[in-house]
Design a protein around this nucleic acid. Structure first.
Length: 217
DNA sequence: AACCAGGAGACAT
DNA sequence: ATGTCTCATGGT
């Protein structure tokens, strides 16, 4: 149905409109991992405040997070929203992360093994896992999020009902022949998220406005 | 003042 | 396998 060329044309238009995005916002792989968990169904501006709180308490560290009582952790995560679940999820993640030997050991694993291991953590679903794989471990996986679904279903390149794994496989397949997929996937997902600011606000959305820099409808 | 944000898990059907 | 509910603050 949609050709690989179309998927690159969308990328080219987004890149031409917005330029390189310099993702993921975060200084270290671990900070990226924390951000990936905290941003679940949450705006990034809220996540920043939570990460600032962690930093201010010397708690942007896996051992510190494991050692911090959930109640105290949740308090730091207040501005993030879902602070009780996310405190629990962060602790789950950090327990796994420390047990697995942190970045150095995990970086030795092949992408599939690492992905399955990430998904075994309670609180890490497919999108969070792929955020971490792409942005912390530089693996060529295409992240599917709500914006990706919305944009490409509005463009009628995919159906709204398509499931996560199917979409991911589809995107990765369409872009298989591109070189430097890590960089491409990195920019592509970031551009889609950035572009979401300009999504058509009308309901139902018009089908053709979603790739214009400024929707005038 | 409703509505949504860079999802995921528990649970019922 | 597929729906529905819950989690929660902050910005429009």
């Amino acid at each position: 149905m949609s050709t690989p060329k179309k998927f690159m044309q969308v990328f080219d238009r987004l890149y031409a409109a917005y330029g390189p995005q310099q993702w993921w916002p975060g200084d270290t792989p671990f900070e990226i991992m924390v951000g990936a968990v905290l941003t679940q169904n949450t705006s990034w501006t809220n996540v920043v405040k939570g990460i600032e709180n962690l930093k201010a308490n010397q708690a942007l560290d896996p051992q510190a997070i494991v050692d911090t009582h959930a109640k105290r952790l949740a308090k730091w995560l207040t501005p993030v929203g879902y602070f009780n679940v996310k405190a629990r999820r962060l602790k789950n993640y950090c327990t796994w992360y420390l047990h697995a030997g942190q970045f150095e050991e995990l970086a030795k694993q092949d992408t599939h093994t690492l992905r399955e291991s990430l998904l075994s953590v309670n609180g890490v679903g497919p999108e969070t896992a792929d955020d971490i794989l792409l942005y912390a471990f530089d693996r060529p996986v295409f992240v599917i999020d709500a914006y990706t679904r919305r944009l490409f279903s509005r463009l009628a390149y995919v159906s709204e009902a398509e499931k996560y794994e199917s979409l991911r496989a589809s995107f990765e397949n369409k872009l298989q022949k591109q070189n430097d997929k890590v960089r491409l996937f990195n920019e592509y997902h970031a551009l889609i998220v950035n572009h979401a600011k300009y999504f058509c606000k009308t309901k139902p959305a018009c089908e053709h406005c979603c790739l214009k820099t400024q929707c005038q409808y």
